[in-house]
């Protein structure tokens, strides 16, 4: 948009492999795909939490040992953390003006999100398998 108008490079040359069109479409699509998946998953999660509200450890263990419950919970966790890190990336890109801080905070948020995803999914599997 504000590129030098006196450049000898052709518009096509500037757009190919450079410019703004890198992975924007993939990121946009990932956000929408995870959003759509989360509509039924969130409803399931809320209904499940209401059902589990008085549960102690034994009752939770019994519930998560059901293959369907464990599967949907793991889907919910994977999609939730994927959605969270991609949304947080956009927020940080928009509001953190310092380049170094922006990159560092995006890296930190992504690492934390995927670490929490791994911990929560492994925790579900440990209980579900009764290890």
């Amino acid at each position: 948009m504000s590129g030098p108008s006196h450049s000898l490079r052709s518009p096509l040359g500037r757009a190919l492999g450079l410019g703004s069109a890198k992975e924007g479409l993939h990121h946009w699509w990932t956000q929408r795909l995870t959003s759509i998946a989360l509509i039924p998953l969130v409803m399931w999660f809320v209904v499940s939490l209401i059902g589990l509200r008085q549960s102690d450890w034994e009752q939770y263990t019994l519930w998560i040992s059901n293959p369907i419950n464990a599967t949907v919970m793991i889907l919910f966790l994977g999609v939730t953390f994927h959605h969270a890190q991609s949304g947080m990336q956009v927020v940080l890109e928009d509001y953190v003006s310092s380049h170094g801080t922006r990159i560092a905070s995006i890296i930190a948020v992504k690492f934390i999100c995927y670490a929490l995803a791994a911990l929560s999914i492994v925790s579900v599997l440990i209980v579900a398998f009764g290890v």
Binding site: D56, W57, A84, M88, V109, S120, S123, V124
Partner: peptide, 23 residues
């Protein structure tokens, strides 16, 4: 709310990990 919900996943992870650690 997106930022708040992301922070809230700490609570979600605590719940599930606590169950894996035991009663």
């Amino acid at each position: 709310t997106g930022i708040g919900l992301t922070a809230g996943t700490l609570l979600l992870t605590w719940w599930l990990a606590a169950a894996a650690y035991g009663p």
